[in-house]
Design a binder for these strands. Structure first.
Lengths: 338, 338
DNA sequence: CGCGTTTGATAAAACCTTTTAACAGCACAT
DNA sequence: ATGTGCTGTTAAAAGGTTTTATCAAACGCG
């Protein structure tokens, strides 16, 4: 039977019902100032009874902190953004912070519009996310009166930035293959334009040394298929393992290998990258792959923007979060299914 | 050289710089009340110069409309939610409305937390989205002081709800196959628990009549694969077309057909459902499928919540938005590639 | 009993904007 | 000269909360 009236309950209603002034009510509810324990209890009980909830707008207006942040992304359909955003939202809701989602579609006009809306709303900070190719924001984000955190994206030199640790992730994959006794490891990955592709490839080359070969192409299944056909058609030794730059590529690779009657994992072991479950789980055999811990990335980005908005110091520069190896059945060794 | 100070510019700054009162400044900027054209121009110029932007919190506090809405979803990794949300955000940003993204992970506690946060923020409305299985919200959404719009989800009887038109979508697929001369059409779809699966299957049965068969299973590739194996192993006439309940299933179907050396589309035509590009584009041959127009769904939901929040009437009940047939190469007829 | 100190409560200001009502000035008609 | 109507401007209130400064009462102590 709480809040039956038409109007929202205000702290004024609480004060009146509890027979105190609004200042006392405020103090009692927030444990500020000096309040008698008995009064405090009464005020709180009354507030509970009439269903009082403080107006965040009024609160924000006064405190100059809106307890909201904006997430600016140009990755609309992305499987990268949403898990990340969920991580951000998840960690921030417990701190009473809400998240505005702004999809820019890579359109500068839209980005500008969203940015202005966010500033007007006095957000405490902004998280900018990019797809992996377009690492730069479609709008000027430096010299803003609020902190900005970059994820999957490049900010100015001294900004706070988060990436997955592509170098370590690639090493994880290669080491796993080596431990299983594979020695002729091939790397099939996406376009050379992508920083992530270059880093992973370099890490792979460093780990494998002589005879290693990185093939750049698209982030597509088709490319994986095509690359395998090329490699198995030409003369010379064939690889006994393939490390793929994405799960999609790995899927194409596996399909092509099957077409060639190459046994997986007996003849060739395959590792992917992304742990995009809907793909990795459905390949036959299920794909061993590298998980970028997107949710954790979101957590860290959320906590960073939270600290920054409070004025607490956060180490600047690029933080790279470790990836995780997810073992399924495309490499052979542990035969338990996941 | 605008806004170099530390403080945000307020309308008070504008008024002072233009030599008028704040009321006049406000009137001039918003075209309210009576203002001399010359004064109005001057105020606007000054506002522009010093980089004044009105504080949305103060504005919302007074007008009791925050020009923000909340999107409550339990579909974290979903390919359904994000395109939809992008549609909502896209259509609303032009009306000066921002969108809070709240991922509930289907956790009632989290849902409650988010809901309270939204109410505290005085959002003008809420859009609730569900995955297709769990159609009911994890939290009480009726009897709220603000309007709610449901998408992919069931609200109370008189609520405003949007779904794709599964019935029409299925008919679209079947009609397409029939027009191409196919007569023995099989339907392989997801779990019977899903309302969408049941509707599509019924529509298919109605259109195909005698001999039609709907096979329920999972929304997985594996199920598509398995179903095809079952059908082609048993005696009797084989289908010359398969209508699948999702693109993932279609993918499994296509893989299984290839394993059986059945030609696509010559021997069997295949239609999917979802137009999930990353799958539909990559199958061989590329998949003809049904697009649910998720972005348009988002547009409509956004406009609906906008109208409701202004107190304008919106037709209650379930609105089903038409699906669209996307022709690629898995059915044969038009050979142009897309 | 007078004085300083502590306690508990409150009035008022502040945050920034929009809106209402009032006011001064002026032109025009009576 | 008085009244009427219009124009442009402004003071003030309102919206809901937190914080600062003030105040009254009670208390302890010499």
């Amino acid at each position: 039977m709480k809040n039956t009236g038409d109007r929202r309950r205000t702290i004024y209603d609480v004060a009146k019902a509890a027979g105190v002034s609004i200042s006392t009510a405020s103090n009692a509810l927030n444990d500020t100032g000096r309040t008698n324990a008995e009064t405090r209890e009464r005020v709180r009980r009354v507030a509970e009874e009439i269903g009082f909830r403080p107006n965040a707008l009024a609160r924000g207006l006064l405190s100059k902190r809106s307890h909201a942040i904006g997430m600016l992304t140009n990755d609309t359909y992305g499987r990268l953004t949403l898990p990340m955003a969920a991580g951000v939202s998840e960690v921030l809701v417990d701190h009473g912070v809400s998240v505005f989602l702004c999809a820019t579609n890579n359109d500068p006009r839209l980005a500008q519009l969203h940015l202005e809306a966010l500033l007007d709303r006095q957000v405490d900070g902004i998280i900018f996310t990019a797809t992996r190719l377009d690492l730069t924001p479609p709008v000027q984000l430096s010299r803003l009166p609020i902190p900005v955190v970059y994820v999957f994206a490049e900010g100015p030199a001294d900004s706070v930035t988060f990436f997955p640790d592509d170098e370590q992730g690639a090493r994880l994959a290669v080491d796993h293959l080596k431990e299983l006794g594979r020695s002729r490891i091939l790397h099939i990955t996406g376009p050379r334009d992508y920083l992530a592709a270059r880093i992973r490839a370099q890490s792979y080359l460093d780990a494998c040394g002589d005879g290693a070969e990185a093939m750049f192409g698209d982030w597509s299944e088709e490319w994986g298929h095509e690359a395998v056909q090329t490699v198995f058609a030409r003369p010379g030794a064939k690889p006994d393992a393939i490390f793929c730059g994405s799960d999609e590529i790995a899927r194409g690779v596996i399909d092509a290998l099957r077409d060639l009657n190459v046994e997986i994992p007996t003849d060739v072991a395959v590792v992917g990258f992304d742990n995009w479950e809907v793909v990795a789980r459905q390949t036959r055999p299920p794909l061993t792959t590298i998980d970028m811990e997107l949710k954790e990335l979101g957590h860290r980005a959320g906590l960073a923007i939270l600290s920054l908005s409070k004025g607490e110091p956060v180490p600047a520069g690029i933080t790279r979060l470790p990836c995780r190896l997810v073992v399924r059945q495309s490499c052979g060794s542990p035969l338990r299914s996941e």
